[in-house]
Design a protein around this nucleic acid. Structure first.
Length: 256
DNA sequence: ATGGTTGCTTAGCAA
């Protein structure tokens, strides 16, 4: 199974790129974030014509997540199942075959100390609690998405520049670490322990030409699946050319 | 310290 994750930064602005990418890479499953579209405006027909089913949790203007799959996603869940009235569409889960797939768009947090940052930390805490409540690390579970956190300095081109940012701050890292410590393996790190690979480059300040990036998008698998992961890569080429997303896709292959 | 860019929606917010 080939599974990928990609923060599109608007599916409408990126639809032609998305279709070309699906044709080129032929993933079995693609988790998407930042659709920036309501459910009814999602390009359902176009995605179907491209040969994919889509589970969608959309939102107008902001956020929005989806799971595209060659086979029909089953048992779809929209939002973290914890009774919190959260209006932001950042969590979508579906079963694809025998694997439970989760697509997440963790809040950015904007600025350390802000209300949005508190929401980010709380969201990650809620996600960890969801894992505790619903799954075991022995289950076949893959969490994909934009975590808006770089786990350590190996995933930052200029660690000093980002040290106090919402993407690298110690509290954000601790919150993501707590999610990983539940029992999830960062499969790209496992295949590339040296680091130095990035999935996001700011649109500003020539960040991409300078390769001033961060790795803030992740494919996280429980150990039984991670042990069957045969490759994990970032498609840096997708960040090139006209009108790219500011994120590149991450791709992993599993022998299952 | 600020600015730089993009997308959605139309002046300002979020990233």
């Amino acid at each position: 199974m080939k599974i990928a994750t990609w923060n599109l930064n608007s599916i409408r602005a990126r639809l032609e790129r998305l279709l070309a990418w699906l044709r080129q890479h032929d993933p079995d499953v693609l988790c998407l974030q930042e659709l920036k579209v309501a459910d009814q405006a999602f390009p359902h027909e176009t995605i179907r014509e491209a040969g994919y089913h889509a589970a969608v949790f959309g939102q107008k203007t902001y956020n929005g997540v989806a799971i595209l799959s060659r086979t029909e996603p089953q048992d779809v869940e929209r939002g973290i199942d914890d009774g919190v009235n959260d209006p932001q569409a950042r969590f979508l889960s579906a079963r694809v075959g025998d694997v439970r797939v989760v697509s997440i768009y963790v809040p950015n947090g904007q600025e350390v100390g802000s209300d949005k940052y508190a929401y980010k930390l709380d969201w990650l805490r809620r996600f960890r609690a969801y894992l505790d409540r619903r799954f075991s690390p022995s289950d076949a579970l893959i969490v994909c998405g934009d975590t808006n956190v770089a786990v350590d300095e190996k995933d930052a081109a200029n660690p000093d520049q980002w040290a106090d940012s919402v993407l690298c701050h110690a509290d954000a890292r601790a919150a993501l670490r707590d999610v990983l410590d539940w029992g999830l393996v960062d499969v790209l790190r496992r295949h590339h322990p040296e680091g130095g690979l990035y999935s996001w480059w700011d649109y500003r300040m020539l960040a991409f030409p300078k390769n001033n990036g961060l790795r803030i998008d992740h494919i996280l698998a429980t150990p039984p699946l991670a042990n069957r992961c045969t490759s994990a890569e970032i498609d840096r080429d997708e960040r090139k050319g006209a009108k790219p997303s500011d994120h590149a896709p991450t791709i992993a292959e599993f022998d299952c």
